[in-house]
């Protein structure tokens, strides 16, 4: 593992936290101001009565918006833009949705089991029309368990960078380069956890989250393929081009 000075780790923490805050889609202050209003029953029903393809399209648009912020986050991570373009794309294709799921805990209300979506807080019922109840409930469970870790913004920023810089993704050309960046990020994450006096268990809990994220993303891909098999034209003509590039 690389030798990194404490000063270098502090610098890395600063850069990655700043990148996270600049690109996190919703600032803490905005989140506090957001009315914690949940969708009313009639609104929930109106989402449920949308045709399956319309609900899929709406979610694809929302996911794509969130992913655009993750791309900006990646670009600001020290060293990411020094990787070859193949590897930048490999990392984003594999990791951008994972970071969206990580970031979801910032807009998730554990008490009401709801997530900020399309202007209000939505429970799993809102997404019934997608026809992926099992995936949706896993995504909600994941958000809830991320929330229970009560990560600070610094910790969340570093964990997001760690996920994005996964050196074990297939098709990387300069695996070693990515490995170095990921190891540094992990050291910075450990450094922050220590500084914040978090209990030892947090890091191993975060490691478990990495495999949970992979499973969520591969299940998303499966659901998309099943949807595409039935509605190929809808995906082709109505889904955001970036979404198709990433998951097609």
């Amino acid at each position: 593992s690389p030798t990194v000075s404490l000063a270098e780790l502090d610098h890395l923490v600063q850069i990655i936290s700043k990148s996270h805050l600049e690109t996190c889609q919703y600032l803490r202050e905005e989140l506090q101001q957001m009315s914690r209003q949940n969708f009313q029953q009639d609104e929930v029903e109106s989402y449920q009565s949308k045709p399956r393809e319309a609900m899929w399209q709406l979610c694809a648009v929302k996911i794509t918006e969130a992913i655009q912020y993750v791309v900006e986050f990646a670009k600001r991570i020290d060293g990411f833009m020094d990787l070859c373009q193949n590897d930048q794309i490999v990392l984003l294709k594999a990791g951008s949705l994972e970071v969206v799921f990580v970031r979801m805990c910032r807009v998730f209300d554990s008490q009401s089991n709801s997530v900020y979506f399309d202007g209000k807080f939505a429970g799993p019922d809102v997404f019934k029309g997608l026809g992926c109840d099992d995936l949706i409930s896993s995504v909600f469970d994941f958000a809830k368990s991320m929330c229970s870790l009560h990560l600070t913004e610094d910790e969340l920023a570093l964990f997001s960078a760690f996920v994005l810089l996964s050196a074990d993704r297939s098709w990387l050309q300069e695996k070693l380069q990515v490995e170095k960046l990921q190891q540094k990020t992990q050291l910075a994450l450990q450094h922050v956890l220590q500084k914040n006096q978090r209990e030892h268990g947090v890091l191993s809990k975060l490691r478990c989250k990495v495999s949970a994220l992979r499973s969520l993303c591969s299940r998303h891909t499966e659901k998309l393929s099943a949807f595409r098999a039935v509605y190929p034209d809808i995906v082709q003509t109505h889904f955001p081009p970036l979404y198709k590039e990433l998951f097609g």
Partner: peptide, 14 residues
């Protein structure tokens, strides 16, 4: 392939 992603990566960070 990956035209948009390429574009997003090339746009300077604002």
């Amino acid at each position: 392939k990956h035209k948009i992603l390429h574009q997003l990566l090339q746009n300077s960070t604002s």
